[in-house]
Design a protein around this nucleic acid. Structure first.
Lengths: 217, 217
DNA sequence: TATGTTTTTTAGATCGCTCTAAATTAACCA
DNA sequence: TGGTTAATTTAGAGCGATCTAAAAAACATA
């Protein structure tokens, strides 16, 4: 059995691995976990002894097969619970992250399986992130940053890369949510802002916002 | 904020208070928590500093108003989650205790309130224990030990005082569950065993079993 | 490639919770 | 009421996770 802390390290390393090429550095983990590099080194050694990460001094880490499996199961739990909170308990998508951070550490395989079944085996969580299946497979959807669309192109809002309440609430205010169809009406080269048209309204979006919205073409 | 450990101590003290008269002793807590008396003394001091228990050396403890409030909220969460597991996820009543022991420490008032609403504000958990309301009130139902019924008396199975999987599975095997109506057909003074008649069958129950079944008259 | 900078690791300490062993206090009973 | 037993507390230590400060390795670039 692994502690909450160990699980959080594995999850952080998994996510950093997705974002980076090559090994994940000590400092990157420290930043992601809001802790100090020295603490990370200690934990890495422990995880390495448990064969959950591959580690050589000064070389950063990668997850072992076993470590990756655990990380994926935690992510599965997190996303299933988010789905539950939004679709059964009527939470808004900006309210569920912190609660799911706690729920993801509940340790019971039958609970996860029954929850999955109860929810109808959902494929995506409320933020558009794919939910790993029981056996740990996860098909990465083909989403693009909205900022990559060209003038005149159309897309459907399908995910976000910033899960903060602040960002999600901003989208809410603009009436932007998953499933919204849009068309790029104008792109501004100077600041990379853009103007888009949805069924409801015309919106001005900054570079930051357009970068954090994921669309399917 | 209190740690899981602190919460478990408060819960244990609350339950011991229900069962005993006067202050709860160090040894009783140690036994309930599966730990050593010395550890209990340490924790008691900490809880006392936080004003969650009243404590004087060698005198045992009582919960303060604040401590009792926290304990009741944990019990509320435990019982709501048990109800959820049985009634929504189709777990059996002997499978839910350990999972609820984890879920009860999830910290989110809106989560508890919405769960309560989602479940239809249930009054009793799957073992017949009353679920405290949001404001912490808890009406103790008027249940008796089955062993207290006299020959010829009737009752309805309404609760259990042993929540172990072993006991619950035994009841299951005898087709005894909440709501079952029964009549005492015979009591044996020698070993305090009894024979009861339900709609379905006639059962022999030992003293131990009859002591742990609660009935409403 | 040598030197300065950044990253990472090590050493040593702290905090929360637990333990064993020993000391202290309370309770019981002859 | 004094002595024995049982309950409780104290003292001191360990473990997991964290930190700061200092040392070591890797890197970057002039």
């Amino acid at each position: 059995m692994n502690s909450f802390t160990e699980e959080n390290y594995l999850k952080a390393i998994y996510k950093l691995t997705e974002e980076s090429i090559g090994n994940v550095t000590t400092n990157a983990i420290a930043e992601a976990m809001n802790t100090k590099a020295a603490s990370v080194t200690d934990m890495i050694k422990k995880l390495s002894e448990k064969q959950l990460v591959n580690y050589a001094k000064y070389q950063g880490v990668t997850l072992t097969h076993k470590g990756e499996g655990i990380a994926i199961q935690i992510i599965r739990k997190h996303r299933l619970w988010e789905f539950f909170l939004v679709n059964k308990l009527n939470f808004k998508w900006d309210e569920v992250h912190d609660i799911a951070e706690e729920l993801e550490h509940i340790n019971s395989a039958p609970l996860v399986d029954r929850l999955d079944e109860y929810l109808g085996f959902p494929k995506f969580d409320p933020h558009g992130d794919p939910i790993p299946s029981k056996n740990g497979t996860l098909k990465i959807p083909n989403f693009f940053k909205l900022s990559k669309l060209e003038t005149g192109e159309r897309g459907t809002v399908s995910g976000v890369s910033d899960h903060s309440a602040a960002f999600l609430q901003y989208l809410e205010k603009q009436h932007l949510g998953l499933g919204i169809q849009l068309k790029v009406s104008e792109k501004n080269d100077y600041d990379n802002s853009m103007i888009i048209i949805t069924e409801e309204r015309t919106l001005f979006l900054s570079k930051e916002v357009a970068n954090n919205i994921l669309v399917a073409k």
